[in-house]
Design a protein around this nucleic acid. Structure first.
Length: 846
DNA sequence: TGACTGGAATGACGG
DNA sequence: GTCCGTCATTCCAGT
């Protein structure tokens, strides 16, 4: 048995916490890194945690022992030394990476919990060599006690596929001599060792720290486990399933992965240190891997045994219909459910659209809808906390998602991940991950998987249930901002970025071999503790647009409205500055905590020639503002689209309600570039055709209204994206005018579908013309690398996240279709650069 | 006992 | 530079 091992240890200042983990590779891989005869040592130190890592490659147990006792950090300075006492050991002195280089941004904070890292670190999954694989638990050869003193450790780097990103606590590990705890280091080493666990936290609460320049304080990513909740080995959380899984997991290590890992290890650049896998995530991952290993793919054997466990794998797995035996194997137990899990339907396409691709919610006869929206508030839990339960629906139940138009007998898999809710294109939220909830109260089976570093909850959509799923198994996990902000390429900031959306996807294999993917996103969900209690939240508004003359009463529905609440209408310039702001009159007499009636103020220029998108927000006082809501002032001559009466809404005046504005728009673009997603989709598909007769329109919970309405291609498929909210009035108004407005269901699932390229996705991607269908045979595209590979582009329908862009400023070709419908003229304004890229990349293909 | 929940303490950030 | 409100994160206690 090989003893190639990578171990990692750390100890809190107090010594109360000690963890280590080892990565062991199969013997067959040994040769891959046999050149690493000399231990490589790295260290990381922080205010309260000091760790060092060594990699020892050898073939004998004796060596292993050596590893555990021969390495020591002897200097707190910028270099570490392997204790010479170790025979055969070369003293290795490594230069401490500079602050900047110390930690690769992609590496999650060492301190970050397993889940954070696992899910967020790009590196973590890039190679398919998943972090948790490295955890002791995962290792078939776990040797929890292996490195007692001095267990060498190595910080793996996320980029290195086999790297050991995050060491998991290994209680059993001996704390001896492993750590050099020198506060002086802390000061000298900018990269802060972020207190991963409360124990190690600098300060009592391990708050986020920032570096000198204001950037998040980089903390060494050592052990994800450190978070209280994470307990690697010996962790009570480690289920038997996981244990069992371990054995099979290693099989997935491939030479390439190993090589990558070794490379990472052999690289002095700690920057490449991998992120740890948060415990929770790890669990998930494990599960996933288990599934992967068991998964049978037609012609895809290679995949399973392929040299790389790629994200595609995850994708594929997620697409695979549930199979009770294999699919669920390795998953945490879920309360018994009546579902019978059919064998996985062989999936043909090796690739699935990246999570940041904008997909339609309806296409052809299919329509994916959120029948019951989640509550607008759900306090997410940190890894250090226990679960805070599943996201609930406003009614007290849970969100419900249903796929209409699917008449096959094969069950499908509904994917759920946490997406953003800002004014940009929908994409996986960097700071939140879906969290699988299990327990007596959970009736829906689920499984966690990873796709592009994003946790995806897979839920069966069964024909016997009318392709309807009650989402009572999904909670939301908050990842520490400091962890995420360190990720390579991560540009989002976590502060105040606390709104998310639940994004549902389903992939339907078509007879022609293609796969149709649909996506729908929920209304925004505020995930912070405080905000949920104090900030006003607008969920619905009775009007999306109105002539510049104003004067019309508009009903706002939401939460935390106060008698003193103010509603401000603002118009922003391209640079984000407010060019106009006015306060709307609030009907004080009708104010309720959940509804507000205002009078639309007249626009500053009542003779506008084209619609003007503005926004408004509810303000309860200083810093207590709702997110921006969309509103469009129309030219006086534009005929208003008649809306139908709506259902009563909590006793509020009867007014048609539009949920679209609900989406947050913190940065509402003054003018949305014409790259309207809908437009993009319009191309060769009619995503939202009338509900087919086959569709269970009679379903109580169904909301056919969403589909019946639009004569215009992609009527409502836009709203979900905040971005879309910025659509020029004409288009917006048309889209927003549902034939069957419903107060009960704030936002239609349709709203979520966007075919807009995603900014954060991969800018480098070329964007294939959008088409909800993509060839199953299309080259698998790694989510990481992004699907919009040249090959995929030919058939791949999705609009890749950005990139390919159309010349900036070029109007989306598709928009024309939409814009033509309404009699409104569309004014194309120069979008700020960021937005430019964000929205203009697509029109091309169409 | 463990999973939720709600509340609050703590410390960092930012105006 | 200090004060103070806000926010993120962690901790605690109750159900």
């Amino acid at each position: 048995m090989p003893c190639n091992k990578v171990s990692y240890s750390k100890r809190s200042k107090s010594g109360a916490t000690f963890s280590s983990f080892f990565i062991q590779f199969w013997a067959e891989h040994h040769t891959v890194h046999s050149d690493l005869k000399a231990p490589r040592c790295f260290w990381e130190a922080g205010p309260c945690v000091c760790i060092y890592m060594c990699v020892c490659v050898s073939d004998s147990v004796a060596d292993e022992q050596w590893v555990s006792s021969g390495c020591e950090i002897t200097s707190p300075s910028k270099s570490i030394t392997v204790d010479p006492m170790a025979k055969r050991v070369n003293i290795v002195t490594l230069t401490l990476p500079s602050i900047d280089g110390y930690r690769d941004p992609s590496c999650l904070s060492p301190a970050s919990s397993l889940s954070s890292r696992s899910c967020n670190s790009e590196a973590s999954y890039e190679s398919g060599f998943y972090n948790y694989d490295n955890s002791p638990q995962n290792s078939p050869w776990q040797s929890p006690c292996v490195s007692p003193k001095g267990s060498s450790s190595l910080l793996s780097c996320p980029h290195a596929p086999g790297s050991v990103p995050s060491p998991h606590h290994s209680p059993s590990t001996s704390p001896h001599g492993t750590i050099v705890n020198d506060d002086s280091w802390t000061g000298a080493v900018p990269r802060n060792s972020r207190p991963s666990s409360p124990v190690c936290t600098v300060g009592s609460h391990g708050k986020r720290k920032y570096s000198f320049n204001g950037a998040p304080y980089r903390q060494p990513s050592y052990s994800p486990n450190q978070s209280p909740g994470a307990s690697p080995q010996g962790s009570p959380r480690l289920s038997g399933v996981e244990e069992a899984w371990l054995g099979s997991t290693t099989n997935q290590y491939t030479n390439s992965a190993i090589v990558a890992a070794i490379n990472a290890l052999s690289t002095d650049g700690l920057a490449e240190i991998g992120e740890g896998v948060p415990l929770k995530s790890r669990k998930t991952n494990l599960d996933h891997n288990a599934a992967m290993s068991l998964k049978v793919e037609p012609g895809g054997d290679e995949m399973a045994s392929s040299t790389e466990l790629c994200q595609e794998d995850y994708s594929n797995s997620s697409r695979t219909p549930f199979k009770k035996e294999s699919y669920c194997a390795g998953f945490l137990d879920v309360p018994p459910h009546p579902y019978s899990w059919p064998k996985p339907k062989p999936y043909i396409s090796p690739s699935l659209p990246a999570l940041d691709w904008q997909l339609p919610s309806c296409s052809g006869p299919y329509s994916l809808q959120i029948e019951v929206q989640p509550k607008s508030h759900h306090r997410a839990h940190y890894e250090t906390e226990g679960s805070r339960g599943a996201v609930k629906a406003l009614s007290g139940g849970h969100p419900v998602v249903q796929l209409y138009g699917y008449m096959e007998s094969e069950p499908l898999t509904l994917q759920l991940f946490i997406g953003t809710a800002d004014d940009r294109l929908l994409r996986p939220h960097a700071f939140y991950q879906v969290h699988r909830i299990t327990g007596k109260t959970v009736s829906t089976a689920s499984h966690e998987a990873l796709q592009s570093n994003t946790k995806v909850l897979e839920i069966p959509l069964l024909p016997e249930n009318n392709m309807r799923a009650i989402i009572d198994c999904a909670g939301i996990l908050k990842l520490r901002n400091s962890d995420i902000e360190l990720r390579k390429g991560e540009t989002d900031i976590g502060r105040k970025n606390t709104r998310v959306r639940m994004v549902f996807r389903v992939h339907i294999n078509q007879p022609n071999g293609r796969t149709l993917s649909l996506q729908v996103a929920s209304n925004p969900i505020e995930c912070s503790q405080r905000s949920a209690q104090e900030l006003p939240l607008v969920e619905k508004q009775s009007l999306d647009s109105y002539p510049a003359t104003g004067g019309k009463r508009m009903l706002l529905s939401g939460h935390n409205f106060l008698p003193d609440s103010k509603v401000m209408f603002v118009e922003k310039a391209q640079d984000g500055h407010h060019v106009w702001e006015t306060e709307a009159k609030v009907d004080k007499d009708s104010v309720k905590s959940t509804s507000l009636v205002i009078e639309i103020p007249p626009y500053r220029n009542q003779r506008i020639a084209s619609s003007v998108p503005v926004s408004f927000y509810v303000c309860n006082g200083k810093r207590k503002r709702s997110q921006y809501q969309r509103f469009t002032y129309l030219p006086p001559n534009v005929p208003m689209i008649k809306t139908e009466p709506t259902d009563d809404y909590e006793g509020a005046p009867r007014m048609p309600m539009h949920s679209k504005p609900f989406y947050s728009q913190q940065r509402l673009p003054p003018m949305m570039p014409l790259g309207d997603s809908d437009s993009c989709m319009v191309g060769n598909y009619s995503p939202c055709p009338p509900r087919p007769a086959a569709m269970p329109c009679s379903s109580p919970g169904s909301s056919p209204k969403l589909h019946d309405l639009s004569p215009v291609p992609f009527p409502k498929c836009l709203s979900s994206s905040p971005t879309q909210s910025a659509v020029p009035g004409g288009v917006a108004s048309l889209q927003d005018t549902p034939a069957h407005p419903s107060l009960a269901l704030p936002s239609s699932p349709d709203h979520t579908s966007l075919n807009m390229p995603h900014p954060q996705g991969s800018p480098h991607l070329s964007s294939p013309s959008y088409h909800p269908l993509y060839p199953s045979s299309s080259p698998s595209s790694s989510p990481t690398s992004h699907p919009s590979t040249p090959g995929a582009a030919t058939e791949s329908p999705y609009l890749p996240p950005f990139g390919s862009a159309q010349p900036r400023g070029s109007p989306p070709s598709l928009l024309a279709e939409d814009s033509s419908s309404p009699a409104l003229s569309v004014t194309i304004k120069q979008e700020p650069q960021e937005l430019d890229q964000m929205y203009l990349d697509d029109g091309r293909s169409l």
